[in-house]
């Protein structure tokens, strides 16, 4: 993460973080140009092929990088506020955990953990309470969207439990239902 500028920085001093943005734009432009350079030609009749527009964008990105660098060097970029890093880590962590678990643990567990970690990122909430509500809400959402509205959402243990539960309920209330139906 980029170090925030101290609030006391006097004006008209180079803004190093913004200079970093300029460097990033330049790198992006170089990447676009490099990618375009390995493309074959094509579109012989149009005279502009698959590389033309990427090259144009790369040139513009380089120009914008220079412009950004000038503004940064002059300290004309807007001031940034102090950022708390811990909440960001909680939320990004939650998204990463969801990504890692979604295929194996199913929608409810993965999304429940994301829910709890996001809530934790925003303040002092009890983790067990957050996890429990996360699982319950996600399971309910899964049931509505995957079962009733036929959306494809990955199933895990909690989802299978719900399917089993629904099955038991159904047989309990309707003993006639069976293979014959």
């Amino acid at each position: 993460m980029i170090e925030p500028m101290a609030q006391t920085t006097p004006k008209r001093r180079p803004d190093w973080a913004a200079l970093l943005v300029a460097a990033g734009l330049l790198a992006l432009g170089a990447l676009v140009a490099w990618d375009a350079s390995r493309l074959g030609s094509g579109g012989a009749y149009a005279r502009i092929g698959p590389q033309t527009i990427p090259y144009a964008i790369a040139v513009c990105l380089a120009g914008l990088a220079v412009w950004t660098a000038i503004e940064a060097a002059l300290g004309e970029f807007p001031q940034r506020e102090q950022q708390d890093k811990l909440p960001i880590l909680w939320i990004v962590g939650g998204l990463v955990v969801q990504m890692a678990l979604i295929k194996f643990a199913g929608f409810s567990i993965a999304t429940g953990i994301l829910f709890a970690m996001t809530a934790r990122g925003f303040g002092r909430v009890s983790i067990p309470k957050a996890l429990l509500s996360g699982f319950l809400i996600s399971a309910a959402v899964w049931f509505v969207f995957a079962r009733l509205l036929q959306l494809t959402l990955p199933a895990g243990p909690i989802e299978r439990l719900m399917i089993e539960g629904a099955k038991l309920l159904a047989t309990a209330f309707n003993p006639q239902a069976g293979p014959a139906a």
């Binding site: 099955k167 159904a170 069976g178």
Partner: peptide
């Protein structure tokens, strides 16, 4: 196991879309 559960569910609940 999951597939078995799916089939069982489908047989037990005809009409209610429960399994594939």
């Amino acid at each position: 196991l999951a597939a078995a559960a799916f089939v069982a569910g489908a047989l037990a609940l005809p009409g209610l879309a429960l399994a594939a």
